[in-house]
Structure formats: C-alpha cells, structure tokens
Design a protein around this nucleic acid. Structure first.
Lengths: 340, 340
DNA sequence: AATAGTATTGCAAATGTTTTCATTTCTTAC
DNA sequence: GTAAGAAATGAAAACATTTGCAATACTATT
C-alpha cells in the first residue's frame, strides 16, 4: 500500500488523480451539469480508484444542509412508536435524509438535552412526540429556526406544526361505544400520564364520553400500570379477584388490552360475554388476537409518512406555515365488546 | 432584535461578546482546566446570552470524532429489533454518542448504500444486524477503518467483531426440546430466510436437532410466512384444516408463535394438549401470553448494551481486537409444550 | 480566419472550529 | 523590586469543502 493510499482520500487527492482542480471535483458532485462529461468520467474513475467518500461535515459548515433530521421518542420499544419510527424513517430516507434518533424515557428534561445535542449536529429538522414539551425546548427550537413537527397528537393552537390524531377524540370514541352498549360498571386501565400528553388526552376523552351517559369509573376500578402486557395482566387479575366486577374494561392502549385479554383467558372469564374490553391504537396483532380486539385506529404509519413529507417540505422550501394536520382516529369494532 | 442577534451566533460572536479571543472560547469548552475561572464565567455568560450552540460539523473536519454511531437494521418495527435498538441507544447515549438510524428492509444491497451514506456523515462507528452482508459493504467498512460490530448473530470466524447469540444453537435447543418430548409429527413455520442469516441459522439448528432423533419436517408442514401475527395465524389455520395434523409446531420466532397460538385458540385446538408450540426470542409479552409460550431467550437488551459498550471502546481506544462476544441462548420452558 | 458567445475550468476566499506556538500576565521567592 | 517560572491568552495555520469571479477553451457564425 503506497503512502498516498494510506490516509483517507480527500477531494484534493481526487483532484490530483483526475488532473483537475478541487473545484471541478466539487462541482462534479454538486452541479454535474456544469462539468464536461469526459471530465466527469475522469473524476468518477479517480473517486472509485481512491475509494473517496464525501465529507458531509465539511459541506455542512458552508451552511449547506446536513442531510439529517432528528427524531426523539420516549422509547423505541413500544409497538406504538416502533411503527411510527419505521414509517418516518422510510419516508425521510426516500427524501435523502438520515435520521438521528434518541429516546428520553418520558423525561422531558432529558428531551431538552437531546434536542440541544441534535442542534449541535446541525440537524435540518426535528421531530418530537407529543405536544407537551419543556418551554426551554420550544424556545431553543424556535430560536434556532429549525423546522419542527410534533407527532402523534394533534392540536390546533400549538405554535409548531403538529401531525397526529386527536387523542381526546380517540378516547371519546371508545367511551361512547362502551356507554352505548349500556355498560355502567366500567373499569379503566391507563399508563402513567406524566410526560405523556397522548395518554392523558385519551383518558380525558373516555371520561368525557362516559360522563355524557352518566357513567364514571370508580376509584377501585381505576388502574394504572406501565406500558407492558405483564403489568396489565397482573393488575387486571387482581381487580377481578374481588367480588364486585365491572362489565367493561377500557384500556388506554392495545398493549394493555392484550394483557387484560390474557388475564381474562387465564381466569376463565369469557370475553365479551362476561366482560367487554377495548384498546386504543390498533397495533399490529390486535386484529388477529383471539378474540379480535375492538379498538380505535390511530394510523401510525400514516402519521410517520405525513410527518416526513412535511418536514422535508419545510426544510426545502423556506416558507413555513405552522399548519397542523389531523389524521382522524377511527373506531374499529371487532369481537371484544357486547351489550350488557 | 438587533442585527447581531439575527444570524446564528458562532464562536467568534461569543468571543467578541466575552472580550476574549476565539481560541479561548474554544479552549473553555474543550479544555476548561486551561482557562481561568473568571474568564470561563464571562464566556459562559456570553454563550447563554447569545444562545450559542456548538457546531459539531466544524469540529468534525478537524478529525475530531463526530460523536455519532450508525445503526442499520432490517426494520424497526419488529419487536425483535425494537428492543435491541432501545437498549443500544440507551447505552450509546450514555457514552455521549448519538445514533444515526436507517433500515434496509432485508435488502442487503440497500444496506450498502446506507453504510456509504453514514460514512459520508463520518460516523465514528457502525453497527449492523447479522453476519451476512455484501462483500462491498465489508470492503468499505474495512477500508475506511470504521469500528464495526455485527449484532444479533454470533460467529467466530467473522473478520468483524460480532456480538450475539448462536442462532443455530437457539434453534437446536428448541428442536431437541420437542424431540425429547417424543414428538415425531412436527410442523415448522419460519420467516423468509433471504437476507436473514439469523432465521436461516435457527432453522438449520431446529432441523439438525430433530434429525438427531430421526425426525424431520415434511414439506406439507413446512410453512413460510412473513414476520406477522396475522400471516402466521392464517397459515396455521389453513394447515390445521387438513385431516393430517402435526403434534408440534416449531415457530421461527415468537411473533409467529403468537399467531399460531391465536389460530389454535380460534380453531378450538387446545395447547398443549392437542399440539405443542414453541417460539424463539422470548419477546416481551411471551411470558404473559395465555398459555405462556415455551421459547428460547435471546437477550436483546443484553446484546444491545454489550454492543454499545464494545463499539464505544473500539472508538476511544485505538487498538481493536476483533474478538466476538457470545451471549448464550437459554431454553425457557413454559406452558405450550407437552409430551406426546 | 476572426469574432462573439458559450461552456468549462481554476483561483482564492470563505465556512466554524481546533491547536500549536509564541506572547503576555501573574505568582512567588528572594 | 527583580527574576524565574507558571498560568493564561492570542495569532495564525489547518481542517475539507463550496462558490463567486475571472480566465481559458471551445463552438458556431460570419
């Protein structure tokens, strides 16, 4: 291996090898139409021979876009976000960007730190989950003028673009469905709502719809567990051990519902004959659960794709309008609910 | 807003505001012990006032590390990878790095393109899923000298560091378990093995263990479906519609097993009385499934954490030894299997 | 064969940092 | 009050690119 090969090739090495100036090499990448075809061929050849790889960092300091978009989620390994990340990533990659990913574990203060870090990397855009964030975070984003979208939850009054479902409405749909089935003895199981405006909204929606029919969830049937099949299963099992049992169980999301369904299966309680169950989210698998879960579809893939499109647009066209986009949640009636 | 505030603050603006030279500002960030406390205070103050955010791109062109690590997975929204990504991301963030994430949808040629892109971003390290990759990809990585780990699958002879389970062994564990339960009429359901060495290895492991007991999966019970609860459920339902039925079903991963379990539940076939079922992976939820799934644990979280540690080490200490690490898969016997 | 116009290329400055080396300032001991 | 040494700072070069402008090389037209 000769000396020249040893250190990684830069644009100057390529220029030398192709017997042109660095400017021409640069142009050949960025404005190929400005360089003669034959010259381009020489350059391409040199690039290949030297194994040259462009240095985006060097481009970025010219105010050129970095080609990265930051995505910060509470956590990756909730089905709910995995799907979103996947669709967002596909759509944003198609547009030539790469994702910088980080997770904050529902700690909004940590989110702020992560946003800062991504700004240091000069991301061209940012995507955050939910509407609720630290004031500092918003300030930072606004000050830096980085195109930002808020995912998953929809709100009109947010100063930033939000793209998502009206989670309140999703909850409301479920609450009404249950109430219309004449259930009055209703239990609920929700994840902790701290740092999670989506869950909070859904819960409010359920309560609101139920209230319209004069129903409310009593304290002893008001369960809170982490986002996990096992935790939900245990909590439900414990609740059902008591004399007094509800006739319906509203779950804050599908994962919790799966846990509940397993609990009933284990306890030999028939769904929907003895108890009705609902989820929210319509995650992969809910349709094929046995019995198939009645839930509200929040189209994660659609949200991810829309968000990617929007963010790419905001980055490329300078004119940003903070118009939010709403994707409507849809009640999906399957087999876990029956009238009382 | 004054003119000076308008454009984003750089280190020179900070230096001016603090009445020191840019060098001092830089030092105050990178080697704080070299600058007087009172000066540092002035600088910090200016930084805050101007909302200055460091520009990593500018640092990166000095050969300083970019602080990013590339992670390329087949897809994010398989439970199997979501968990891995999460643990990897936590561990790598703790070490001060940020993840660049991309997915290739089991197309290894696309993976090559993504690796290139990440190299353009000058990632300090790379993590890939599986042992099998395009020769071009390996060449690129080696040539650029980027510390790389191969995740999920373990192999001694790989030139790159690999960290994962021996998937062949995982399959073997399951095969033996089933055979020892005296099953001879065994069905199998696996995902497509193209571009997926993990699945291929597992399958081989199962077949090998079965063969030791003189058992093999006949063609009509040899199912292949995409990684999805619904697809597995349908395929299994169809298989069970025939006269001839197996007494055991080996599933290539837990998701497929869930689908199978739902299929049996729907068809009213009792597990494990009428048929035994196994998964591989021990994903979240398998323990709490009803009936609880017998499977092989491949500790995704552990793999992710180990990988992050290793990659960070390889980046910071120049001496790289391509020693692979193996995490052992463990048979988890639960309730879905019975002797015949 | 000369000219005008266009296509292609190179030069040099600029981008936002870090770092080496030299210079200045501060301590401390006498 | 001075000298020696240490601590703190600044000037300038370096990093890998891009780009505006000027220079050169072609092409077509007369």
């Amino acid at each position: 291996m000769s000396d020249r090969d040893k250190k990684k090739a830069d644009i100057i090495a390529v220029a030398k090898a192709a017997r042109v100036s660095p400017s021409t090499v640069s142009r050949s990448f960025n404005h190929p139409e400005l360089v003669k075809a034959s010259t381009r061929k020489k350059i391409d050849h040199a690039v290949r021979r030297l194994g040259y790889i462009r240095n985006r960092a060097a481009q970025t300091i010219h105010g050129i876009r970095s080609g990265t978009v930051g995505l910060i989620v509470p956590t990756v390994d909730h089905a709910i976000f995995a799907e979103l990340i996947q669709s967002f990533s596909e759509a944003i990659e198609d547009r030539g960007f790469t994702i910088l990913l980080a997770s904050h574990g529902y700690e909004l203060q940590r989110e702020y730190v992560l946003v800062r870090k991504m700004l240091e990397h000069r991301v061209d855009g940012m995507a955050l989950i939910g509407i609720e964030h630290e004031a500092e975070t918003f300030g930072l984003l606004k000050r830096q003028g980085v195109p930002t979208v808020l995912l998953w939850n929809y709100s009109e009054q947010s100063t930033f673009t939000s793209i998502g479902s009206d989670n309140f409405h999703a909850g409301w749909l479920i609450g009404r469905h249950i109430a219309k089935l004449n259930h009055t003895r209703v239990a609920g199981i929700f994840p902790p709502i701290k740092g999670n405006d989506r869950a909070a909204e859904r819960r409010k929606g359920v309560e609101c719809a139920l209230a319209e029919f004069g129903v409310r969830i009593p304290a002893e049937w008001d369960l809170e567990t982490p986002y996990s099949v096992g935790a939900a299963k245990d909590a439900v099992l414990q609740m059902m051990a008591h004399e007094e049992r509800p006739t319906a169980l509203v779950c804050g999301n599908d994962v919790l519902a799966w846990g509940a369904l397993h609990a009933f299966s284990k306890a030999g309680i028939r769904v929907p004959d003895e108890i009705s169950v609902t989820g929210i989210g319509d995650f992969k698998g809910s349709r094929d659960f046995e019995p198939a879960l009645t839930t509200v579809r929040i189209p994660a893939r659609q949200i991810g794709a829309k968000a990617a499109r929007r963010i790419a647009e905001d980055i490329t066209s300078a004119n940003r309008n903070a118009m939010s986009e709403r994707v409507v949640p849809e009640l999906i009636v399957r087999r876990t609910c029956a009238p009382v």
